[in-house]
Design a binder for these strands. Structure first.
Lengths: 219, 219
DNA sequence: TTGCCATGTGACCAGCCGGTCACACGGCGC
DNA sequence: GCGCCGTGTGACCGGCTGGTCACATGGCAA
């Protein structure tokens, strides 16, 4: 490994540690350079300044995150929309639960929009939208994006809130027992989602979409 | 009005304007003093520094907020728990919708906990808990605090998120139509709450609580 | 060997921050 | 008249910030 690569790694890891410990407000050239044990000039040379460093770091994060994480793998065909949505929500909670850094970044996205945070948020929105559109196509009779949106937003908020408060409406935000309750609550709320289209209705729908009309389905 | 009172008002209003325009990160002695058109020394004299100013401002805010806002007034006895919860959620959305400053403060509470933000958050938690405990006592068979917590957290997140993103799961966060959808979604999700205790069951419950046993209710 | 270029360092700059201080004005009582 | 005190101002301080620059070292190629 070249000397430069090693230095770049040190800087990237220092950045992550700094975000984890001090939040995005504590991220400055001086602090990161000092933590990396390196002159800040190198950050300008190798990453073209702080925004470039952040972008580089996020590019690297994306590589091993968000692979199939968001959608709970691709066993789509075998499960109901409700089950898929539940596992998506669980996946989001887990992803946030295991990374202090990620939580800090998402708090930051809530406060500030700039050249670094915008692409991140937009990527997420695009991925989430493609998921919800698929779910929406499998159900009938209710506003699935809005209902799931509230539940997803809810668990995100609760995860972020855990940093500064220990309880929400009396339910503990830190530790297993609170999240077991939230998980059960999610299951129950998901029961309010519109019912899935039956396989027969799905086939009919496809037929209509293909322009073949709706009459060729066996009565 | 004394000269000092007028100056204090200027400072307090400058603080609010600064929070609204620049968020909590943009709040510093220099910026507030400059916006108020006043020497920062006066902030130290009259409010004992920035934390004192923030506390004074929040004390003033609380006076005309959170009166009965949170609970949607006190027509409790006449309505079902589900209706009360829905109106509480609507009240929260309205309160956040009409004040950019309040939204900034709540974003700040999410990121930082200190001598100023802690009392604020704790007050809110206490008020919310007393509300939810009442609701919990009126229903049976499900984890009401956890379910309502997710919904409340959800609308809070969506309100805060509107600053930096225009959509969430494809649903617009700015403008009326998105929020009409969220309102309908809330109504539907609330349908998943456990059913209210009947009056008769309530009387029975009270009887048990009072130690009189459960047998004296007319069959 | 000579010289070049990548790597790395520390000093230096202007600008902003919070915080304090000395001082000016002006009404009000003695 | 005099002096006091509430109100207000601007200058000043040390410390930190992001950003740039000159310079040292050391490996590699001609």
């Amino acid at each position: 490994m070249s000397s430069r690569e090693r230095t770049e790694r040190q800087i990237l890891e220092a950045l992550e540690a700094q975000i984890r410990d001090c939040g995005m407000n504590g991220v400055g050239i001086n602090a990161v350079a000092k933590r990396a044990g390196v002159s800040k000039e190198l950050i300008y040379r190798y990453f073209d300044g702080m925004p470039g460093l952040l972008l580089a770091w996020m590019r690297e994060q994306d590589f091993w995150t968000s692979r199939g994480d968001l959608l709970g793998s691709d066993e789509s065909s075998a499960r109901t929309p409700a089950a898929l949505i539940l596992s998506m929500l669980r996946g989001q909670v887990e992803a946030l639960a295991k990374s202090d850094t990620l939580r800090e970044v998402r708090r930051w996205e809530l406060v500030e929009r700039n050249e670094v945070s915008a692409p991140l948020a937009d990527r997420r929105e695009r991925a989430a939208r493609s998921f919800i559109d698929r779910m929406d196509g499998l159900t009938d009779g209710g506003d699935v994006p809005a209902m799931v949106g509230i539940m997803l937003a809810g668990v995100l908020y609760l995860m972020l809130r855990a940093k500064t408060e220990s309880h929400f409406l009396g339910v503990p935000l830190r530790g297993e027992e609170g999240w077991a309750r939230y998980d059960a609550a999610l299951e129950r709320l998901i029961g309010a989602l519109p019912p899935p289209l039956l396989e027969s209705s799905l086939r009919e729908l496809e037929a209509v979409r293909d322009g073949r009309g709706a009459g060729d389905r066996p009565a």
